[in-house]
Computed example of a mutant assay.
Amino acid sequence: MSYKYLAKLFTSAEISRIASGDMTNLKEILTELPELAQLDTLADVYESSYKLLCKHYPNEYVIKNTIANKILLGTHSMNTASMLSELRIGDNKADCVIINGISTCYEIKTQYDSLKRLPEQLATYTKSFDKTYVVTHDNHLDALIEYQSQYPQFGIIHANNKGNLSIKIEAPINMNFNTEMMFHSLRKEEYTQIAKDVLGFIPNVPPAELFSECQKIFCSLSSNEANSYFKATLKHFRKNDHEFINLLPKSMKNLGISYKIHKKDKERLISSCLHNSVHTKGDTYVLPILSR
C-alpha cells in the first residue's frame, strides 16, 4: 500500500466518516500495514500513521501539523494566538497564518509541489501579512534561496522528515500593505465590525451598499491602522477551538484547526480517540468528553 493512501486518514472527508462511526477505510488500511494492525485505539493508530507519513510521505498535512505543534502550541499559546488555514488573499489561499502580536504567513512547498505559482503567491502574501515564510523540503531549498536573494521580502523555513522546522532566512517585517486586498479577505461580520469599531456604529446604508461603504472606511485608514484592525478581527472571529484541540493527540492537532467539524462530531471523535477500540463493531461511543 502506498503512503499516499495512508495520508487519506488525515483528510476532512475521512475524519467526518470516523466521527460518524464509519471505520471501514480505517480498518482496510490496518489490514494492509502490519505495523498498524495490532494497534487498538484510534489515537494510537493516528499517532503511528503520522510517524510513517513524516518519514515516508511528508505532505502538506504533515507540515501544517508541525507548524501547529512547534509554533502555535510550542512557541505561542492558543490563549494569545490563532492559526488560520487556507485564508483567501486575492486570488490565492494562504496555506497557514498565525496571528499573535503579528501576522505570519506560512506558504508550504513540499517535495511534491511545484514552485510555479510561488511568485504570484508571494506578491500577494507579502502585502497582506507582517511576515511571510516559505516552508520547504530539501529539493526546493537551493531554488528558494536563489529566488529570495532577488526578492528578499520573504523568509525560508526548512522542514525535515523528523518533524523539525529550522529558519534558514529570517523573514523581514512588511511595511507595505495592500489594504484593498486585505479587505476582500474579510467576511461580512468581520468588515462590519471593523466599520463599527472605527465609526462607533455600523453604516446606515442599503444592504446592497454596505460592502462598498465598509471597504471605503477600511481603505481610508492608514496601512498600520488597517493592519491592526485586520489582525484583531481575524483573531477574534476565527479563533481556534482550544478545548477541542487540546484534547486531540499531537498527530491530529491540524485537523482540529483546519477542518470544519460539527460540535457533535467533535465529541464523538474525542471519545473515539480516548476510549474506543478501532476493532469494535458498531457504534460504542461513551459519554462525550466535551460534555462532562
Rank of each mutant, 00 (worst) to 15 (best):
Y3W: 02
K4D: 09
Y5T: 14
Y5Q: 15
A7R: 04
E14P: 02
R17E: 14
A19K: 00
T24V: 11
T24Q: 10
T31E: 09
L33A: 13
L33P: 03
A37C: 04
L39R: 05
A43V: 04
D44Y: 07
V45R: 01
Y46A: 08
E47P: 03
S49T: 06
Y50L: 13
Y50A: 14
K51D: 13
L53M: 10
L53S: 11
C54H: 00
H56E: 14
Y57G: 03
N59P: 04
Y61T: 09
Y61P: 06
V62K: 04
I63R: 02
N65G: 08
I67K: 08
I71Y: 05
H76P: 01
T80S: 13
S82L: 06
L84H: 03
L84C: 05
S85L: 05
G90A: 01
G90C: 02
D91Q: 12
N92V: 08
D95V: 06
I99Y: 01
I99H: 00
I99P: 01
S103T: 05
E107P: 02
L115W: 05
L115I: 11
R117H: 05
L118S: 12
P119K: 07
Q121I: 15
L122V: 09
T124S: 15
S128T: 13
S128P: 04
D130W: 03
K131P: 00
T132M: 04
T136Y: 01
L141Q: 00
E146Q: 13
Y147G: 07
Y147S: 12
Y147D: 10
S149R: 05
P152A: 11
Q153Y: 07
I156G: 12
A159C: 09
A159I: 04
N160Q: 05
G163P: 01
L165N: 01
S166N: 11
K168V: 15
E170A: 13
P172S: 09
M175F: 09
T179R: 06
E180Q: 12
H184C: 08
L186I: 08
Y191F: 06
T192R: 02
A195V: 09
A195D: 06
D197T: 06
D197W: 00
G200P: 00
I202A: 11
I202C: 09
I202D: 07
P203A: 13
P206H: 06
P206E: 10
P207W: 02
P207F: 03
A208T: 10
E209D: 15
F211G: 05
E213L: 02
Q215K: 15
S220E: 15
L221R: 03
N227V: 03
S228W: 00
Y229A: 11
Y229N: 08
F230C: 00
K231R: 08
K231T: 07
A232G: 08
T233E: 04
H236C: 15
R238Y: 06
D241A: 07
H242D: 08
H242R: 14
F244T: 14
I245G: 14
K250Y: 06
K253G: 14
N254L: 10
L255Q: 09
Y259D: 14
K263Q: 14
K263S: 14
D265P: 02
D265H: 10
E267D: 15
I270R: 06
S272Y: 02
S272F: 03
C273E: 02
L274Y: 08
L274N: 11
L274G: 09
L274C: 10
N276D: 10
N276M: 05
K281E: 13
G282T: 01
Y285M: 12
L287M: 11
L287V: 13
L287P: 00
P288S: 11
L290I: 12
